[in-house]
């Protein structure tokens, strides 16, 4: 039932409840008022006020902003109302109309509860049909692909459908941020299956991506995925190199206190120590962690590892001298 029909029905029910029939003579109104008395009239007025249709005011761009604001506050019904109002007011196919359509589609797609993926998909396709080369069309394609990646009851969706949907975005917008994002999502989805051959394919695809998109803002994430592939494929040197590049390409938001490089230092140090056997490199990153993040939980562990590496080296040296002395004795 739509909102207008619902309001009419609620109104009729209230009029009937208070004994009013609009078709009767005016004295029926008087009688009804007598029956319900003042409190009843006040209550009815309050109910009607609550049901009164919201007056959509403002320009389309203001309504779109308000729609997104409501969306972010989790007020999805209000967001829908704003986007619908903006759609009605904006010229068909204009930027505001597209913006409102995209907002409405996103709301129907991601509101919880009350999501309507079919309706959302239809609206996203409407954006694409109206302006196939527009930015919002790119994001709409990505949204359609992401809908395929949404788990149903917590279960992973089918990989093939995801891969194909992401490919749609990549083919249409290979150098758009939405296309690059789709590419990374596609590879990450493929990596969720712990399969060595598939991982090899993903690694090759990622290396091609890095080659073709050397200035992509997603470079750090791409190198991160390369490092993951190398973990699975047991390529420690390549893994370390990828991790290093990921850390160098990482964008740090200076306003976010939760974000720091300590985790990256820690990962680099441990890979250098245990997988590469490069103690000099490991020491460098452990020391950086200790110096730059002295309150970090891993500092104690880092100090223990520094000590351990000294002990391992010492042990190897003494082994070597033991062997040497045994050799000399043998001679």
């Amino acid at each position: 039932m739509n909102q207008d029909a619902m309001q009419t029905r609620v109104g009729e029910t209230i009029w009937r409840a208070v004994g009013l029939d609009r078709r009767r003579r005016p004295d029926s109104v008087r009688n009804a008022l007598k029956r319900v008395g003042l409190p009843g009239v006040l209550m009815a007025a309050l109910v009607l006020l609550g049901c009164a249709k919201h007056q959509e005011t403002g320009r389309p761009e203001t309504l779109i902003l308000s729609g997104w604001n409501n969306y972010r506050l989790g007020e999805f019904s209000l967001a829908t109302r704003d986007f619908e109002a903006a759609m009605k007011k904006a010229p068909q196919g204009g930027p505001e109309h597209l913006g409102a359509l995209y907002g409405l589609a996103t709301t129907w797609n991601l509101r919880r509860p009350g999501e309507d993926p079919d309706r959302a998909a239809q609206l996203f396709r409407q954006v694409i049909a109206l302006a196939p080369t527009n930015d919002l069309a790119a994001w709409s394609w990505l949204a359609l692909a992401r809908m395929k990646a949404m788990p149903v009851a917590g279960e992973s969706p089918e990989l093939n459908a995801q891969v194909l949907a992401y490919q749609d975005v990549i083919d249409r917008f290979p150098f758009h941020s939405a296309g690059e994002e789709a590419f990374l999502f596609q590879q990450a989805a493929r990596l969720e299956t712990p399969d060595v051959d598939l991982t090899r394919e993903v690694l090759a695809a990622l290396e091609r991506f890095i080659e073709i998109h050397p200035k992509s803002p997603w470079l750090s994430s791409a190198y991160g995925l390369v490092a993951h592939c190398c973990t699975v494929l047991n390529l420690p040197d390549k893994r370390f190199a990828a991790m290093l590049k990921a850390s160098k390409a990482a964008e740090i938001d200076p306003l976010n206190p939760l974000q720091d490089l300590s985790a990256i230092y820690w990962q680099l140090a441990t890979v250098a120590e245990f997988d590469l056997g490069d103690f000099a490199l490991a020491r460098e990153y452990y020391r950086r962690l200790i110096a730059e993040y002295p309150k970090e939980q891993r500092v104690f562990l880092a100090k223990q590892e520094l000590k351990r590496m000294d002990e391992v080296e010492e042990g190897l040296r003494s082994q070597k001298s033991e062997v040497r002395s045994q050799d000399e004795k043998g001679k």
């Binding site: 999502f185 969720e192 712990p194 993951h228």
Partner: peptide
């Protein structure tokens, strides 16, 4: 992107 990889 990343959370699924650790789980894998």
């Amino acid at each position: 992107l990343v959370p699924g990889l650790g789980a894998a």
